[in-house]
Simulated scan of single mutants.
Amino acid sequence: MSLDSKTNPQPTAATDIEAVSRQLAALREDMSQLAETVSGIAGRRGSRMAADIAEGFDEAKHYAESKGRSAEAQLEESVAAHPLMTIGFAAIAGFLVGALSRR
């Protein structure tokens, strides 16, 4: 029996090499599937992140528009309530711009 194990070392090594080759092929396939899965997850998260950023920009735009309209309405109310004071401020601003542009 010990004679058989000494005379047949080659089939055991070949079998081991084949087993390792199969395991490496399976590992390559698993790595490929894992890469595809990670890529898909990253793509979905990237899409969600882009959508969140776009939504944030839309909210900021609407906020700025509403604040701008509010400030415009307050300015119109102030001008309507104090027309002479508004004319005085405009005249002073005009004189200051004229004085600074002469230099």
Score class of each variant (00 low, 15 high):
Ser70Lys: 04
Ala14Gly: 05
Ala80Val: 11
Gly68Asn: 12
Arg102Thr: 14
Arg45Ala: 09
His82Phe: 13
Ala93Gly: 07
Phe89Pro: 05
Ala99Ile: 09
Ala14Pro: 04
Leu96Phe: 01
Gly43Lys: 00
Ala93Ser: 07
Ala73Leu: 11
Leu75Thr: 14
His62Val: 10
Thr15Ser: 07
Ala81His: 06
Ala25Ser: 00
Asp4Cys: 04
Ser21Trp: 11
Asp30Ser: 05
Asn8Arg: 15
Ile53Tyr: 02
Arg103Gly: 09
Arg28Ala: 07
Thr12Met: 08
Lys6Asn: 13
Ile87Ser: 02
Ser66Lys: 10
Leu34Tyr: 10
Glu29Gly: 00
Glu59Phe: 05
Phe95Asp: 00
Arg44Tyr: 01
Ala13Leu: 10
Glu76Leu: 14
Ala50Ser: 06
Lys61Pro: 01
Ser66Ile: 09
Ala71Asp: 02
Asp58Pro: 03
Leu24Met: 08
Arg48Ser: 04
Glu29Ile: 04
Val20Ser: 05
Thr86Gly: 04
Met1Asp: 14
Met31Ala: 10
Gly56Glu: 04
Leu75Asp: 13
Ile41Arg: 03
Arg22Ile: 03
Arg44Gln: 06
Ala81Asp: 04
Ala91Thr: 14
Thr15Val: 11
Pro9Arg: 03
Glu76Gln: 15
Gly68Phe: 10
Pro83Ala: 04
Ile87His: 14
Val38Pro: 02
His82Gly: 00
Lys67Ala: 05
Asp4Met: 04
Arg48Tyr: 00
Asp52Ile: 10
Glu36Cys: 07
Glu55Pro: 03
Leu84Asn: 07
Leu3Met: 11
Asn8Lys: 14
Arg102Glu: 15
Ala19Lys: 05
Phe89Tyr: 13
Thr7Asp: 06
Ile41Cys: 08
Ala81Arg: 07
Tyr63Lys: 08
Thr86Ile: 12
Ala25Gly: 02
Glu76Pro: 09
Phe89Gln: 13
Gly68Ile: 11
Ala60Val: 10
Ala35Gln: 01
Leu24Tyr: 12
Leu100Ala: 11
Arg44Ser: 02
Gln74Cys: 11
Glu55Lys: 08
Ala26Pro: 02
Leu75Gln: 14
Leu84Lys: 11
Ile53Met: 01
Gln33Tyr: 06
Ser5Asp: 08
Pro83Asn: 02
Leu96Met: 05
Gly88Gln: 14
Ser70Ile: 00
Ala42Met: 01
Arg103Asp: 13
Asp30Val: 09
Ala64His: 05
Gly46Ala: 02
Ile53Lys: 00
Arg28Phe: 11
Leu100Met: 13
Ile17Arg: 12
Glu76Gly: 13
Glu36Asp: 07
Arg69Leu: 03
Thr7Gln: 07
Asp30Gly: 05
Phe89Ile: 15
Ala71Ser: 03
Ala99Trp: 13
Ala90Gln: 15
Ala14Asp: 14
Arg44Leu: 01
Ile17Met: 06
Val97Thr: 11
Ser5Gly: 14
Gly40Asp: 02
Ala26Tyr: 02
Ala19Arg: 03
Lys61His: 14
Leu96Lys: 00
Met1His: 10
Ala91Lys: 12
Ala81Asn: 06
Thr86Ala: 09
Ile53Glu: 02
Gly98Ile: 11
Ile41Asp: 04
Phe95Val: 08
Ala14His: 05
Lys61Leu: 01
Ala91Arg: 12
Arg45His: 10
Ile53His: 06
